[in-house]
Amino acid sequence: MTDQIAKDHPLSPDAREQLRIVAGIMIPASEEFGVPGADDEHIFGDMLRTLVPIAAMVSAALAAIGPLEPLDQAARCAACERFQASAPTMAAVLVALVAQCYYRDARVMRALGMEPRPPFPKGFEVEQGDWSLLDRVRARPKLYRDAP
């Protein structure tokens, strides 16, 4: 995050730290799958840029969790579980923010077997399929009703 973003950002420094902790709990790094966590610096920077139009909702959701920074990891996870159960609408705000930034990260996309690019202009291949599967349907009498 640049100094300018940090200075002008609508989330307070404490709220930003809280968000980073929540992101890391929601989607942690995994050696097994070769992916960073959602608290990765690059992904988190994307998150801070993305959340600006919904900063008030994000702040409210983070506040509803309660302070995580002083807690150990187990207590942090427990607080997040309580939050998910008691405030699902607020939790959905954080899920949408974290997931959208996480799943467009090039490293994550590569780990999923995707090319890290938008759909356009290259597009994708989709197999044509076997139209002989229709033979059975073609053999049916008409299904539609005649109308007076």
Binding site: I25, I27, F33, V35, C77, Q84, A92, A99, R104
Partner: peptide, 26 residues
């Protein structure tokens, strides 16, 4: 796509927060 898959799974309890997220997502 991946984002809508994640949102579908997380909103229906099929993809959890935490360590099991990646396995459930896949």
């Amino acid at each position: 796509g991946p984002l809508v898959t994640a949102l579908t799974g997380m909103s229906t309890g099929r993809i959890p927060w935490g360590e099991d997220h990646h396995r459930a997502f896949r």
